[in-house]
């Protein structure tokens, strides 16, 4: 349905649903499969300069409406990933890169050497809660670090830069403003919540081998929606709302909180691969019955 079309900092999306980084994005083939299942755009699994094995299994667990993960940024590194993610036109929708760095210099190096390729934008996950050396565990979620990293990446690439923030940040508005001031083209709000921990009573141990991990799934939606609401008030650049969206109504709520596009990740588990098509269809039904001609008309409505 044409009413689902959105323009996100220059990216033309057939619908506002974006595969969140870390889910399924290990290979180009996998991204293509997700695109064929209805996603408006897809994000690759984050790439670091050197290969990373990631954490030992179990890396992902589910308990009802909560998913917990500590994957630990497994990826084959910069040079292998460049080979993997070529010819991205085949995917059929815009592909967003996700790059990692331990500091601003390494982020700039990654941006300079991994981009632009065939990517449409680049995301900076300054918000991972469970990988030492990166994201929240490296202090990348402060206004100062966010400004420094974003500015360094902006100097190294012409692609739109999306800064991914953690819902665990207290002064969200300040961090979002720092990203905007440094030239970010959009904010992805947000990453997994927590970290949290599952313990198995009989094993007497945390279930994730890394012990703690980020929470996702339907249970965190209320937190993500509030974060998007706050960030929308703080900045003028577009916001991608990510966290707990599983249905079309969830996506609409996120948009009304201020999101111009919506990240979808754990919902692949809850409703399988074609969750993107399902959510898009449900959005269309809602928009038709409520008389909204386009997604744009609904962005930030909850603020009025």
């Amino acid at each position: 349905m044409s009413g689902l079309k959105v323009d996100l900092c220059g990216l033309k999306l057939k619908n506002p649903l974006i595969l969140a980084s870390g889910i399924l994005g290990v290979t180009k083939s996998s991204l293509k499969n997700v695109a064929q299942n209805g996603a408006g755009a897809v994000t690759i699994k984050s790439v670091s300069r050197e290969p990373r094995k990631g954490h030992k299994t179990p890396i992902i667990q589910v308990d009802g409406d909560v998913m917990i993960n500590a994957v630990g940024y497994s990826n084959p590194g910069l040079s292998e990933s460049r080979k993997e993610f070529t010819g991205l036109g085949e995917v059929g929708v815009p592909v967003i890169a996700s790059i990692l760095g331990t500091d601003a210099e390494e982020f700039a190096y990654m941006a300079g050497n991994f981009l632009p390729g065939d990517f449409s934008a680049v995301e900076l996950p300054l918000s991972c809660p469970h990988t030492p050396g990166y994201g929240m565990l490296a202090g990348q979620g402060t206004p100062e670090a966010t400004y420094e990293i974003t500015a360094a990446v902006k100097k190294s690439t012409k692609l739109p830069v999306i800064v991914k923030l953690s819902p665990s940040i207290q002064a969200l508005g300040e961090v979002a403003k720092a990203a905007e001031k440094a030239g970010a083209d959009a904010i992805n709000m947000g990453n997994t919540v927590g970290p949290g921990m599952f313990i198995d009573a009989r094993a007497k141990k945390p279930v994730l081998d890394f012990k703690f991990g980020g929470l996702s799934g339907p249970a965190i939606k209320a937190i993500s929606v509030r974060c998007v609401y706050d960030v929308y008030k703080a900045v003028r650049i577009p916001v991608i709302g990510t966290g707990g969206v599983t249905t079309g109504i969830d996506a609409i709520e996120m948009i009304m909180a201020g999101a111009s596009a919506v990240g979808v990740g754990s919902a692949v588990h809850y409703r399988d691969m074609d969750v993107f098509r399902k959510i898009a269809d449900e959005m269309s039904v809602f928009m038709k019955s409520e008389g909204y001609p386009s997604v744009n008309e609904m962005v930030g409505l909850a603020h009025e």
Binding site: T27, N33, V71, H269
Partner: peptide
């Protein structure tokens, strides 16, 4: 395989993107 239930993407096949676990 890592997760075993179709979300991590470790076991996907080329070029279909099918997940071996799911």
């Amino acid at each position: 395989m890592k997760c075993g239930f179709g979300v991590c993407g470790s076991c996907t096949l080329d070029p279909t993107g099918w997940r071996v676990c799911k």
